[in-house]
Nucleic acid binder design. Structure first.
Lengths: 361, 361
DNA sequence: CTGAAAGCGCTTACAG
DNA sequence: CTGAAAGCGCTTACAG
């Protein structure tokens, strides 16, 4: 069924190891064979559709563990009960990871860990030499990291994707949420807006706090109005059962009645901005004429709203970089801890425009 | 690092194959060793934390392919550009699959296929003997199935999870969507409702049509009012960019003005029912006093709304059964095609109650 | 009926 | 410098 090195060797009348050397990149291989033979072998292998037997490769490599060369199996640990609506973010990250791994001819094993007993699965995979490195997504904290650092799980490198709550030094890749808040403000400020509100979904989660920080820092630096009541009273209600966010229209009413209506609003919860339009209409606020709105979103299919302006979270890129980082630290035994932040980008749409009005006093 | 059979053998002063036999379930193994020795070996292996080396097992099994015994690697193919908001459904299915596979000591490899070139990844995995069977989720059609049935991918069993558009006989597992529609009607009818509307999100997708069929069949069988306008004019607007559903409140207005307001409503799109409450309030419809609402949802965390009544789609169970089916057909070479339908269940909540009023004429 | 040998498909150290 | 041998950790057919 599948082609083996031995079959190729037989066809060309060379030894099986000769084929192995021709197909490897080790410095030794180059002098083992004439360039001519090497080329011939490579060509033949290709046209016969040769693909190395994964299990055989892994087993063989077990002899002399060359950590650099033997990275071909990553594990994706989804730690359930996560903060935030992690599902679609998680899948998008996985796609980014898988995409990058496939270029390295490595594959991705999915493991879900929800209760303590589930760590047995991780341990089993590790003991059976089934995985060369872990990617962690979800509820990652010191307890999880301690588990991975100590016997019997230690020795396998890991990288955390997305938000986490670890205090120990770890390798991680995440969206630069600080920059998310900053980017929204900068865009709106460039359009002339000076009274910019943020519609928070809460401050419980790491990303929420980081976005808020970035938002405030940028607003301060640019000398914009810093009306705390704008943030305090406009809040997004989050329904944990649904994973969705709803805007409390009472917040808008309050702002309007108190003459605090901003000329621009930033809605950081991904996909929430689209809910906003009908609520605003109800209060006779027209987007973008009387108010600009910047939302958040990720991946083409999950934008904040139909062609509206939003800050795009580079979730897939987090996956890509996570895979690359894991591959790197799997090779270099003890690399210094890396916390990578991927910058978001602004996608301009119809929901933002120049500031036409003086903010209501 | 990891324990091997040889190490166990050395410790007990038996041969390595003796250990192998003790740990296997083959009939031959039983007579090879005394029950006593066998027990001792098993015990020792366990307390030494022995886990078979996956790659070694696979490689060794390659010699005499006993298809039944050598199932330990499934591949999960996510076919992108799917209909419906598949992401969270997909992840829930994966969890179900992984859960079941882990009991079989098998693991799950994630592969994303979005463009034709991505099939190279599938082919590579197959040629490298990296996978014993496939689970397919997403945009599955005849073209995909033909690909898996013909060289160079053929010979590996596969099961489709969720909706698909294949006309050829295939193995598949899905929610019984027909029963979803039926269940909603039956519950509402049992509460005395006779004018029951369905708020369709569309009829483009397979599941939408099946739910509608089930809904209508049940309504007919139970002799309930069959006012087509109820369905025709109450529609859910779906925003593909967001993956979310929104209810057009104009539909409610139309129904009310025309005296067609039903006493109960079924909202089949998962997670949409929660959006409904504020819209209904706006039209002075109070749930459940003047109208009962049944939504849809899946997995505990994705119910249709906070403690509201909904039909639960057994998505995780689809994953479970899919894994089991794949395992089965991987063993029995050519099993007849199986299309498994998993029945949904009704979760009762606050949003439904007895029919108090005569429907408006 | 028992027990040690062959072999899965690779990688690479190591004899010649 | 070359080329065939050893070995990774298993499974199970096959000599004795």
């Amino acid at each position: 069924m599948s082609i083996t090195q031995t079959q190729i060797a037989a066809k060309l009348g060379v030894s099986q190891p000769a084929v192995a050397f021709a197909l490897s990149d080790t410095p030794q291989a180059l002098r083992q064979l004439s360039t001519e033979t090497r080329e011939l072998i490579i060509q033949t292998a290709q046209q016969m559709g040769y693909v190395p037997h994964r299990a055989a490769q892994r087993l063989s490599r077990a002899r002399s563990d060359n950590r650099a060369a033997s990275f071909d199996q990553a594990g994706f640990i989804y730690l359930g009960g996560a903060e935030q609506d992690i599902d679609s973010i998680c899948l998008t990250m996985m796609q980014g990871v898988e995409n990058e791994l496939s270029k390295l001819h490595a594959s991705l094993t999915f493991v879900r860990v929800c209760e303590p007993g589930d760590w047995k699965k991780v341990e089993r995979l590790m003991r059976g030499s089934g995985v060369d490195g872990w990617l962690l997504v979800g509820r990652v904290n010191d307890e999880v990291v301690d588990r991975l650092n100590s016997a019997p799980l230690n020795g396998i490198p890991y990288v955390i994707l997305g938000d986490h709550r670890c205090t120990r030094p770890v390798h991680s890749v995440n969206v630069d949420h600080h920059a998310v808040g900053r980017l929204a403000v900068e865009h709106l400020a460039s359009l002339g807006h000076r009274r910019i509100a943020i519609l928070k979904g809460g401050t419980d989660f790491v990303y929420q706090r980081q976005i808020l920080e970035g938002f405030r820092a940028a607003r301060k630096e640019l000398g914009l109005e810093d009306e705390e009541r704008l943030a305090a009273h406009a809040s997004i209600w989050m329904d944990p059962r649904n994973g969705g966010m709803k805007i409390t229209d009472s917040a808008i009413g309050w702002l309007k009645q108190n003459g605090l209506l901003p000329t621009a609003m930033f809605i950081p919860e991904p996909g929430s901005a689209i809910d906003f339009d009908p609520v605003l209409k109800q209060w006779e606020v027209e987007v973008p004429r009387s108010m600009s709105v910047v939302g958040c979103g990720f991946t083409p299919s999950r934008a904040a709203g139909q062609n509206s302006t939003f800050v795009e979270w580079p979730i897939a890129e987090v996956g890509h970089q996570g895979a690359l980082l894991l591959h790197r630290i799997a090779a270099e035994q003890n690399a210094a801890s890396v916390e990578l932040k991927i910058p978001p980008s602004l996608v301009k749409g119809w929901s933002t425009g120049p500031c036409n009005m003086e903010p209501a006093k």
